[in-house]
Amino acid sequence: MTGFNVSSGPLKYDTEFAREIYSLENGHHIKKCMQCGMCEVSCATRKEMDYSPRKMFLLLRTGQREEFFKSNTMWMCSTCLMCKVRCPRGVPIVDVMHDLKCYAISKGYTERAQAAFYQSFWKEIWSRGKQFEGGLMARYYLKRGWKDIRKDAFRMKDMGLTMLKHGRMPLMPPKSVKGLKDVQKLVEVAKAQLQKGADR
């Protein structure tokens, strides 16, 4: 929702937090936002977001650390690229959202269902170099725990059966990538390179 007010007190500018965000891989792009509002309109999940991207950028620039971690904005992004192709300032909003997700996870903000999904998905890739639905779902529900599983899970089970029936849900995972070690090493090296860049 866009009509969300941050707080009753004045927004006090915190340059420290803004600087940290700017230093993320695509973080500097946030500076370019001219607050036109195109992203909010373009967003497929705008109704789900508590801050539109442009408003989120304003929050980040003013350094509202807590509001950022509380917000679901980046988790709602479905990577449809609409905002990215439309942004008149050329801000790759989707890519910025990637960074915000990474940043939130790295800081331990993994409460949201999407964060759990992302982590499960990545674990799948990491462990076999390929995606396996069955593995993903198992990891996801394991991560969320029964306390939080809603009726969706049961529906998911039904859906899984239907898919199984139509030959679209293999029970066995695909063969792991032979060069899995290489895949893992590439990721590690790349992460290290990024870290080195950021330290510089």
């Binding site: 890519d95 996870i105 990545w122 890739i125 990721v187 790349a190």
Partner: peptide, 10 residues
């Protein structure tokens, strides 16, 4: 998903 966990470049 991967970009949102490990970043774009990796």
């Amino acid at each position: 998903v991967a970009s949102g966990v490990i970043g774009d470049y990796p």
